[in-house]
Write a protein that binds this DNA or RNA. Structure first.
Lengths: 127, 127
DNA sequence: GGTTGACCTGGAGCGCACTCCAGCTCCTAC
DNA sequence: GTAGGAGCTGGAGTGCGCTCCAGGTCAACC
């Protein structure tokens, strides 16, 4: 099964421009081309794109994804280093979640504060 | 208690340049100045800066913080709208956390995959 | 009174991750 | 055979959030 760039964009959640951009900067291998010179993405290509979008979502910088892609290119010998990268990134994502949760508490506190003001104000009116 | 810009930077976690930048774009009110024309931040100023850094950490865009700052300036009458903004932002933060957690699962899966490869490889050697 | 160091201003520059554009080719359908 | 639409390329432009810089002022210490 192969996909046009439009289909690949739709399935990966990236824009067509972004797909070409990722190819240009070496984040994805150049896909096959049809007789007319158009890109045809394979299921493997799609899988990689989806993985990339997941990593982007977690805030992995492009330069890191590129490094990962290059290691992947070098084959099984680099599996250890790739695993190490994922370990480290996982730790970063966990830290980020913790950070967000801590800020969430501040938000909750602030919102409670606003609700108290409203409450006080309502009492003032009925009193 | 007042603070120099360097002290305010240290306590808020923002850089000196960022403090001046925030002032320039209307995110913080211009602080008082000493006889030599230097900024002197009050405890209130500091409190606002800390709140801003929390919101920035959660990914609130600067334009939204500016809107919030402007509403705050208009006084108690805008409290409802500010609360509404915080509600919406809280929902966004929660969604973001959920998204990160879902990507974390992908990461876990991928890492497990690498560990399995290593395991298989180790067996191959000892066999 | 000279040097040092913190701070000032306006404005330019930067890194990131896209996003858009002009001008072209190619296939398809009528 | 031509009109339309998808895709192609190289390169320029964008938005965000800072960050840096030159050239100056000011206060304090020696």
């Amino acid at each position: 099964m192969t996909y046009s760039i439009a289909q690949a964009a739709e399935r990966s959640g990236l824009s067509i421009d972004t797909l070409r951009y990722y190819e240009r900067i070496g984040l994805v291998d150049p896909p096959a081309r049809d007789s007319g010179g158009r890109r045809t993405y394979s299921d493997d290509d799609l899988g990689w794109l989806v993985f990339l979008t997941r990593m982007r979502t977690t805030g992995m910088p492009i330069r890191m994804m590129r490094e990962y892609a290059q290691l992947r290119h070098l084959g099984a010998a680099t599996a250890g280093r790739r695993k190490q990268m994922l370990y480290e990134h996982r730790a970063a994502v966990r830290a980020r979640i913790a950070e967000l949760q801590s800020c969430l508490e501040v938000l909750d506190y602030k919102i409670t504060h606003y609700e108290q003001i409203e409450h006080t104000f309502a009492e003032g009116i009925t009193a």
